Lab assay of single mutants.
Amino acid sequence: RFRLSPAARNILEKHSLDASQGTATGPRGIFTKEDALKLVQLKQTGK
């Protein structure tokens, strides 16, 4: 289970993504908004 920032949680839910597909870069291993946006971008480019 990942620790998600509220913004990251919202983005992941909106795009039906799972945090385990990305890398948490925030302090103390928190999955940040920026991490979520990177994951969305990867999904949109098909990689």
Rank of each mutant, 00 (worst) to 15 (best):
R1P: 00
R1A: 14
R1W: 02
R1C: 04
R1T: 00
F2W: 00
F2K: 10
F2A: 03
F2E: 08
F2D: 09
F2L: 05
F2M: 15
R3E: 03
R3S: 11
R3P: 11
R3I: 15
R3D: 03
L4A: 06
L4K: 12
L4C: 12
L4T: 10
L4V: 12
S5F: 00
S5H: 01
S5C: 02
S5R: 00
S5K: 02
P6T: 12
P6V: 10
P6H: 07
P6Y: 11
P6E: 15
A7F: 04
A7C: 08
A7I: 09
A7T: 14
A8R: 06
A8F: 02
A8T: 06
A8V: 02
A8Y: 00
A8C: 00
R9P: 04
R9G: 11
I11C: 04
I11Q: 05
I11E: 04
I11L: 08
L12S: 07
L12H: 04
L12F: 03
L12E: 13
E13K: 12
K14C: 08
K14T: 14
K14G: 11
K14A: 14
K14R: 08
H15P: 03
H15E: 11
H15I: 00
H15G: 09
H15N: 14
S16M: 01
S16G: 15
L17G: 03
L17M: 12
L17D: 04
L17Y: 01
L17N: 01
D18K: 15
D18G: 03
D18R: 01
D18Y: 02
A19F: 03
A19Y: 10
A19D: 07
A19R: 07
A19Q: 07
S20R: 09
S20N: 11
Q21D: 10
Q21F: 04
Q21K: 07
Q21S: 11
Q21R: 05
Q21V: 08
T23W: 05
T23Y: 08
T23V: 14
T23K: 13
T23N: 10
T23F: 07
A24G: 07
A24C: 05
A24K: 02
A24M: 04
T25L: 04
T25R: 03
T25H: 03
T25P: 03
T25I: 02
G26R: 03
G26Y: 01
G26C: 00
P27D: 13
P27V: 04
R28I: 00
G29I: 07
G29H: 01
I30R: 06
I30V: 09
I30P: 07
I30A: 12
F31R: 05
F31N: 13
T32S: 04
T32C: 04
T32Y: 00
T32A: 05
T32Q: 06
T32P: 04
K33G: 07
K33Y: 06
K33D: 09
K33E: 14
K33R: 11
E34C: 05
D35I: 00
D35P: 04
D35H: 01
D35R: 01
A36H: 03
A36D: 09
L37R: 06
L37H: 03
L37K: 12
K38A: 12
K38I: 03
L39P: 07
L39M: 12
L39C: 01
L39R: 04
L39Q: 02
V40S: 06
V40L: 13
V40A: 07
V40C: 11
Q41S: 15
Q41I: 02
Q41V: 08
Q41C: 00
L42P: 07
L42K: 15
K43S: 14
K43L: 03
K43E: 06
K43V: 09
K43N: 13
K43F: 08
Q44I: 14
Q44N: 07
Q44S: 13
Q44Y: 13
T45D: 14
T45W: 09
T45P: 07
G46C: 14
G46P: 05
G46M: 13
G46A: 08
G46K: 06
K47A: 15
K47N: 01
K47M: 15
K47Q: 15
K47H: 11
